[in-house]
Design a protein around this nucleic acid. Structure first.
Lengths: 215, 215
DNA sequence: ACAAGGGCGTACCGTACGGTACGGTTCGTG
DNA sequence: CACGAACCGTACCGTACGGTACGCCCTTGT
């Protein structure tokens, strides 16, 4: 059962989800200094139960990350009627979702935890976060890009390259700086500029890959 | 002595640097599971000496990161005679250095360590890495961008925005994926594409901000 | 030659935390 | 009501690791 990426709703009972919530809260508060005792106290459950349900500390951590990461739901964007306007709206929506997610405390915590774990060869968490973060975006964005290309709205050699450029234009240095705890980059600070950044990213992406531009 | 960002050559004796090398090696090998005993053994020194020199574990970690991060030296690029050709060469050089650094094991380890630390409110390491990574690039790149703008080779509203776009175009999703331990993204894999990526990034940046394009 | 100090190796201490065991309570079921 | 399962709270164990103390060697300076 190496990689259980998918987690459906009934994977955890409500009580278990309460425990996971407690774990996540502690994770956000205290970073990875998460102790089983602390989770038990916060969730008003016994350590024995914790071990019964999640096996060990890693299991609890994995469950928490899986459960939370799976919650990142990106709203649908219609790939049906493609116009330049609709495409731009879709791109902006993606950019907005991506940015909003990335700057959230939960996302930062999850990424930090997964990265810390990846440093110990235990890359389960890394893969989970990867799969629910960048890869999820990619899976969702690529078909739209390809549809737009088929409709002659975009031009690019490979959708993979186009996706990665989009990612770069949107995220820039925001994520790494937040992960490193850059004090000059407060969350509210970024939040205020989201709309402008979103528009700029869409503009730039269309400037690079729009059919008009590369005629 | 809260934030000693700068570390000159004579900060550490050769013996101390040997110790720091050992610490870095262990950091690369075992992730943040770095123990004082292990460092002492690897460096053939006593723990007492370690504590005498570096105060405590955090001090050793900080010294290691400082010392190593300061080593990231980016070759000079001449901002004297600015032509389109020279500008492109400079941009490509920056992109190459940035990418080469980012995909290195040492950089990955340092960033992971700093991020792990940042999760515990101890953002010393985060600031050090930030200062020697993204911020160093920014300090070096901005003057060039501004010179190019003064020479009418580039057009942009703010050099800050231009820098961040450049960063995004170069780094894309590579760094976060490496930090998360994406197995689909081996180091050699990325290495082989550096030149192509560098060229693409420079092309795209010039397409967005080149004076010709935005006429 | 000899004292002094810097540093190596090892043994040691305290503590924090992962993991286990157990008594007591609640709740569902025959 | 009786029984058992699930679970809470707490006490407990073992260990790993940060930090300290101490004995010995080797170098350096006088």
């Amino acid at each position: 059962m190496a990689l259980a990426i998918k987690v459906n709703e009934e994977t955890f009972t409500p009580r278990q989800q309460a425990v996971l919530t407690a774990a996540l809260d502690l994770l956000v508060e205290n970073g990875d200094g998460l102790t089983m005792t602390a989770v038990a106290r916060r969730a008003s459950c016994s350590k024995e139960t914790l071990y019964k349900w999640f096996g060990d500390r890693d299991g609890l951590l994995t469950a928490t990350v899986q459960w939370q990461a799976a919650k990142v739901r990106m709203p649908f964007v219609d790939r049906s009627h493609l116009s330049v306007k609709a495409l731009r709206a879709s791109l902006e929506q993606f950019a907005r979702d991506l940015l909003t997610t990335i700057i959230g405390e939960v996302s930062i915590t999850l990424n930090r935890t997964a990265i810390t774990h990846a440093a110990q060869e235990k890359d389960d968490l890394g893969n989970i976060v990867l799969e629910n973060g960048p890869m999820a975006i990619r899976r969702r964005l690529k078909p739209i890009l390809e549809a737009a290309r088929d409709a002659r709205l975009l031009r690019f050699p490979s959708s993979e390259e186009a996706y990665r450029t989009f990612f770069g234009l949107v995220v820039r240095d925001v994520q790494i700086r937040l992960l490193l705890g850059d004090k000059a980059l407060t969350q509210s600070n970024v939040e205020a500029n989201i709309e402008a950044d979103v528009k700029a990213a869409a503009d730039q992406f269309l400037a690079l890959y729009g059919a008009k531009a590369s005629s």
